[in-house]
Design a protein around this nucleic acid. Structure first.
Lengths: 348, 348
DNA sequence: TTGAAAGCGGTACCAA
DNA sequence: TTGGTACCGCTTTCAA
């Protein structure tokens, strides 16, 4: 194995020699400019620039214990819902001088834990998006490393999450206003905190408004899962379907149409997330929207702050940002059909 | 500033002490198991496991010059076309024991170059997806670091790209078979190599089949860009529109419908990429599909090989994988309308 | 087969 | 304000 070492291009020593100062002075001039004489500083900076000096992150990390790297772990990188989060996190990471590494847990708590353990020694903290881990496990990681949760709240852990209570209330009121009396909730992964919030919010608001809601599932939170869920929903005879997320809502929509039902003529469908595609599927989806890119940015800011504090200081009173949500009403919801024409599939 | 150093949890020295051997022996037992006595090795491995030892990537990188980290740089993380690439790359990175960092260049060559420079000292190589850089710049980076291009070919640089020649031929033949005689190509970013390939392939195939194709643009390769492009296409009177990518195609589709045109009754629309949503927009989009997740995996494999070789050995005969593409025919294309009823928007 | 020791490239403390 | 120096944790000679 030749595997020769690729030496770091230009080192601090090279700059020091060229500038005629000590390595420690170069280090200061570059990272603590105010602790160095103006003349020296500018000279050093010039030489460094001329030589194209770039600090070695590894060396710096080894010395300081800080890697300037943040990890973002998600259950499904390909879910369009997460692209806003990814972009927001990436931008803010860059803006704060950090590097973003990304991990996909494939909807699997065990894989998520492994991923975190694998990444831990190389990062300053974790952004856990829609984590599938148990609360206890999250608390455990949080005790060892800075953690910011997105789309999840756990007492004692910093988090950013969309307002599901207000959101589900908007959904229920919308359906009730349209005359719906019976609805179905197509549930996603049991590990999804957001999903549990949604169900809780829907049940509570439904009770208040005299809407009957049954819950089906769990289903995989994907278009394929929605296809299955849609089929099951057909059997129930409810006039409105609320899906765990837009992916499932779109799947259910497809299924309804394939079975000859009209949406929203026979059944109304509501989703969550307002993902890419929700506005141009047929009919366009009524869905609860939240600002994921903004959430990504906020989460990074919180994480960077946590990572800096280092000590427990801040972690004693963790921030819990609850971001507003908004129901976007499109074509997939409409007046409830008359009871005389039940929403059933044509016989197969 | 308290900013106390968070010491690396369990070090090799801890393991060494606990196991009653030298640190160097622990290192060998863990990374070169065959250079250590079986008994010692197993003992050390056991102790390491018991103590929960995890090597410090920083320390390892500093010593070896290898970071076990790969960077994936893309022009737009939120384009659903890239989610397959991201996932494939992430999975294969994990499978080969690497960490994947991600960067968004926002369709901007300068930002892309900066990103690469910023990431360079911390990674073993680059995956450049749909790079917007000039060939010369890519060659320059390739000379300094292992680079694998995705969706781009540059002589001398390893790459994975979808077969655009065959793909555009399929598109043109499809349109010609439907009776279309005049088409429009809505072009994307001039920096897009894929875009240039597409135009070249379309022109050439069109010439062969007697199809007249005009090119409009450039437009931003997004739904918004497609909205604009669609408006411009209306003015031309062609019966078929080929968009730079599905995002633009969907935008154009929206625009056409908003202007009262029927798709494919008045105009047929074809896209590229077969992104999420292409199958459920209205009408579903006819588009050229390629396997991006597979491309991501292959690209990582190539990059890992390059990074290992270290020397120029392999780089003298770089691999150029050209992956097959397939036209997925859906509802957005149909027979050309009769010349007597030109495809025009209703007057405003 | 194992141990000792010299780096890798920075940072940070202590003197000067 | 600067220089010298001792690490940070791991890998890799070189000896034993």
């Amino acid at each position: 194995m030749p595997s020769a070492r690729r030496p770091h291009a230009v080192t601090i020593t090279d700059v020091a020699r060229e500038a005629g100062v000590a390595a420690s002075t170069v280090s200061r001039a570059l990272t603590n400019p105010d602790r160095v004489n103006v003349v020296t500083r500018e000279h050093v900076q010039q030489v460094a620039a001329r030589l194209g000096y770039r600090a070695s992150p590894a060396a710096r990390a080894l010395g300081t214990g800080r890697t300037a790297t943040l990890a973002l772990v998600l259950p499904d990188i390909t879910n369009p819902y997460f692209s806003g989060l990814i972009r927001g996190a990436e931008r803010q990471a860059e803006a704060t001088g950090h590097i973003l590494v990304i991990g996909d847990s494939e909807e699997n708590a065990r894989a998520e834990a492994r991923m975190i353990e694998r990444l831990t020694p190389g990062v300053d903290g974790f952004l856990l998006g829609s984590s599938r881990l148990a609360d206890a496990r999250i608390l455990q990681f949080n005790a060892a490393m800075p953690v910011v949760l997105v789309n999840r709240r756990v007492p004692g852990v910093t988090s950013v999450s969309p307002d599901q209570l207000g959101g589900t209330r908007q959904i229920v009121e919308h359906l009730v206003a349209l005359g719906h009396r019976r609805a179905i909730f197509l549930s996603g992964p049991p590990q999804s905190w957001l999903g549990r919030q949604r169900w809780a919010g829907i049940s509570s608001a439904a009770r208040k408004h005299g809407l009957t809601v049954r819950r089906l599932g769990p289903y995989h939170p994907s278009v394929e899962g929605g296809l299955l869920a849609g089929e099951a929903a057909l059997a129930d005879g409810a006039t409105a379907v609320i899906a765990h997320n837009d992916l499932m809502a779109i799947g259910a929509l497809k299924r309804m149409k394939a079975r000859g039902l009209s949406v929203p003529g026979d059944v109304s469908i509501v989703g969550f997330d307002d993902i890419f595609g929700a506005d141009f599927c047929d009919p366009p989806l009524t869905t609860l929207s939240d600002r994921t890119e903004q959430a990504g940015r906020s989460a990074v800011d919180l994480l960077v702050a946590l990572a800096r504090e280092q000590a427990r200081l801040e972690r004693d009173a963790p921030a819990d940002i609850v971001a507003p949500t908004q129901l976007v009403i499109r074509g997939s919801t409409g007046p409830a059909p008359q009871p005389s024409e039940p929403a059933r599939a044509a016989s197969p």
